[in-house]
Design a protein around this nucleic acid. Structure first.
Lengths: 199, 199, 199, 199
DNA sequence: CATGAATGAGCGTTCATTCAT
DNA sequence: GATGAATGAACGCTCATTCAT
């Protein structure tokens, strides 16, 4: 049963996301959202307890989308065993580049905002890591090692992505190429990982 | 250069750094700094032209320290050729862990704040990358390839470091170990890099 | 258009006018207005986009009132042709003396504040001048000469009025008498004007 | 015995005057003056008790200059009796146009600043009026009538001048011509004055 | 004679939020 | 379900001024 076409909640979220990415964190104000959406600022409080809750909703959205994106890639890659890590990594990078707004709000929350964010919701983040870890090591590996390997892969990806999104990378280094390389390094990381400590 | 017993400038910088890291970018206000330091807000303008200049000074400080740190490591490692990449990467990671406030300040500026940062000053960041790149490939490599490789190594390191500093990594994955692994992955990345595209 | 019992907008305007006249341009601050009116400073921004807009509203009000006053006088004087300049001049002086706050606000804006005033609105000032000019010369005179004559009359009136309102005139010279004389001089000015240059 | 070439007092006054006219009343701040003069703000307090005193010094300067200017014109015009009013009026207008900075600060002080200005100093203003009045009526006229006539002439001049300096006059009315006309009207005013009331 | 350090007051403005309607 | 009015707190910043040196 769809609500009225003017139902504000999704439009508020959409506008908040748009402002966040196109004008930066500093432009995300309730009044600004309201003006852009065509309602008044207090209306936002009909759908969100406060501004924090709005941002948290954005973060939630982001994690749900990321998980869905990775699960789709995972299912698709099931046919080609032995390659699913590549597929997942590429899917992760694709998501980040396609949705920089989500990625930024998901991972650029400072300690203050983060501490106000209900930890329980971060289980989705764990689920994503499990997905990567199992793709890299198979279901047989112990949970701790799975997590460690997944985290290592994730670090490699996240590094390139976050530097890229923050425009910290020299123009002469093409961003997409760097990301593709980072995916390959992440994959190698998974393979090398057992040997890293013994070297 | 004032030399009152309570010399404010360094205390302002230190407090700004602390606020930025422990309470996030939104808590960095001139009034807050002043309150915490024990002076009045206008006093800040005796030492910094405006808030931007204060933040830029913070970033500059960080890059200068990092460069000094890496150059020291570089000089020290000159004796053991062939190992200088490891040494530099480890030095980079050490710096980040030893000075988390500086590291966060340097890389948590978003594009919005960054756009007001005089580009000329980013030469220090380039210098750091050059150092890493030449350690990895030797002085013979072309500048473009040197930069690309250095950026790849840097990404790998930065990913692990920034996730670690942001407390995004599961407690069961020990941070220092992850970083050590990330260093090794970064080094491998440098070696693998030529083969990455052709594989 | 708000209709609360304490409708702030007119009270803000009135207080702004009062401050501007009794304490000078330097005392006109949003906070001061708010304190005097009994609201908070941000409330002002519910009715005016910014301080400039508030001042412009003040000037506009003044010019509208002046025009209405002069048009009424003009209509009334239509019956006695040949005397309408006197009537208009006297009406002008009457307005200034009866509404010193408005008059001062209209003409005490310096070039700096004036430069931010949308020029389009000055058409009211022109309309007032046209009224005076046509009363002096009749509808047959060319627009340029009409404007020149009107400006000369206006200058004469304005000089006496503004010195009077600024309390620059010695107490032994009775203000109203001076103004009445100034009106007569202004009228003579209109009659003499053609001969002024050739004399 | 001339002070050192860097004697600050005159330079402060000169800079204050310059700021007042080129950037308006709002730009006249102690810090700004100091920066422009090349000293520090507290240095100003070595020569002026406070900012008010500085402005008053400017006003004084202005009135002294105006009086000197008019007295010179008066002396020069002594040879051509019957024409000295014209000469004085023209000298007055010339002074205002040549020194708009002085004229503005002399006559654009708001009631707040004016009330703090020692009235005693306004005797110079009276002296100027006397000069004009006696030129118009000769030394035989009673002091009251002399003052009244002088004030009327002054009003006429001041009206045109202040509108001109405030840029309130339409571009198509050439300022100097308007002022020349105003001088003639003022002179006529003096001649008409006896007849004004009897009409 | 002049300064560097510092301040208290105030500026225009924006913020998230409340609440009666 | 949504609004208009209003607010307290804070923002970055400039002001005139003081005072020990």
């Amino acid at each position: 049963m769809p609500r009225s076409a003017t139902d504000l909640k999704p439009r508020i979220l959409a506008e908040a996301r748009r402002l966040l990415v196109t004008e930066g964190h500093g432009a995300l104000s309730t009044r600004r959202i309201a003006r852009e959406v065509g309602c008044t600022a207090p209306s936002i409080y009909l759908y969100f307890a406060n501004k924090d809750a709005l941002v948290h909703a954005l973060v939630d959205e982001g994690f749900q989308l990321l998980r869905a994106h990775l699960e789709a890639a995972h299912a698709e890659a099931a046919a080609r065993p032995g390659r699913s890590v590549e597929a997942l990594c590429q899917a992760y990078a694709d998501f980040a580049l396609a949705n920089p707004e989500y990625y930024e709000v998901m991972f650029h929350l400072g300690p203050a905002e983060l501490s106000r964010y209900p930890k329980e919701r971060y289980r989705v983040q764990r689920a994503v890591l499990d997905l990567i870890g199992r793709a890299a090591l198979g279901p047989g590996a112990g949970p701790e090692r799975t997590l460690r390997t997944a985290t290592l892969i994730w670090s490699s990806l996240h590094g390139a992505i976050s530097l890229h999104l923050a425009h910290r990378i020299d123009k002469s280094v093409r961003g997409p190429e760097l990301l593709a390389d980072a995916v390959r390094v992440a994959v190698q990381a998974a393979r090398l990982e057992p040997t890293l400590r013994t070297e």
